[in-house]
Computed example of a mutant assay.
Amino acid sequence: MFNTNGARRAALGAASAALLALSLTACGEKENTAPPGAGPTVTAAADSALAGKVPDAIKADGVIKVGTDSTYAPAEFLDADGKTVVGFDVELFNAVAQKLGLKAEYESSPFDAILPGVDSGKYEIGVSSFTINAERLKSVNMVSYFSAGTQWATKAGNAGKIDIENACGKKIAVQTGTVQFDDITARSKKCTTGGKPAITIDQYQAQSDATAAVFSGKNDAMLADSPVGAYAVKQSNGGLELVGDIYESAPYGYAVKKDQTAFAEVLKEAVQAVIADGTYQTALKKWGVDGGAITSSALNPAN
């Protein structure tokens, strides 16, 4: 029923130590000085007018239940305690929820299970770097709040001579259920149609596993959302490098049930409110992803 494709979907001294560092990064390991996310928690003041527009069924308990895939640093990942979900997506949505007089509670989920969870009522919202696309809009309402593209990464030095326009015969890592999987599948088909070897596509449930596979040499390269790829490279301490430019930028969106248009509308107003009061820019700058800032939120924008 659900097509979950869409953008989404980061070492140590010796090789074995490097893989451990990647695992720690996915769980919130920090760099030496002013790492992304360092500093005071960004908060927003409640807006009583907006809070009054939240449907009774959602505001009754004062909590909004959020489904998220916590393997996608720096957007959403587990902190050092192994259970608290942090990241720029989390900090920004916390501020949006606060505008509505709500507290966000996050539940980690496989990425491709979140939208079905929203539809079933398990989650009241999906916040997990979902790119807004036509296929998703068939099943959920989406409220835009950020913009990201796709970018590739490989081991430092690019010994495999990865060319994103000609990756035929290479082994490429992607996270399951992402637009990057569609992207690399189409590239592989182009290879075989042209008489070249197919791309070997390895899918990983967690983005951190895809990244580790590239660092270890199991895969030649990976492609992921641009802020995620950049963060992975930064956290690799010189072990990884970006390849090529960012392409196909598109908005991320919060996902709510298709029949909850009124809630989606007030979410859009709340995003616009945190943009207007500066909370939005503060949160994105704190995480070093302000290049993806938008100036206006939209409900179900054409893409």
Rank of each mutant, 00 (worst) to 15 (best):
G28P: 08
L267I: 01
K83T: 09
I201H: 03
Y72E: 10
K170M: 14
V127M: 15
A51D: 06
G253R: 14
K190C: 02
D163P: 12
G62T: 02
L78A: 05
I201E: 10
I275Q: 12
Q98C: 00
F130K: 13
V63D: 08
Y280V: 09
F130M: 02
G194F: 01
C168H: 06
G121H: 06
D277A: 11
Y247Q: 09
F88C: 03
A224G: 09
I294N: 05
S296E: 15
I199P: 09
Y106M: 04
S236P: 09
G278N: 12
I199N: 03
T279D: 09
A7G: 11
T193E: 15
S128F: 05
A159Q: 11
A73E: 08
G67K: 09
D290T: 02
S48M: 08
N133I: 06
F88S: 06
T43R: 10
T200K: 07
I132N: 12
P35N: 14
G62H: 11
G217R: 00
A21Q: 13
A34D: 10
A97Q: 06
F93C: 07
L102P: 06
S70D: 10
W287H: 15
W152C: 01
D245L: 11
A60M: 05
T84G: 10
L267E: 03
A148P: 01
F93A: 01
A210F: 03
A7H: 01
S144N: 05
D290W: 03
W287F: 08
Y204S: 04
T25H: 15
G177W: 15
E135C: 04
Q281P: 00
Q260E: 09
K99E: 12
F263H: 12
N166V: 10
V42C: 02
L24E: 07
Y106A: 06
I184S: 13
G13P: 13
E265Y: 04
E91K: 02
T41G: 06
K268D: 07
V90C: 10
A159C: 08
V266F: 01
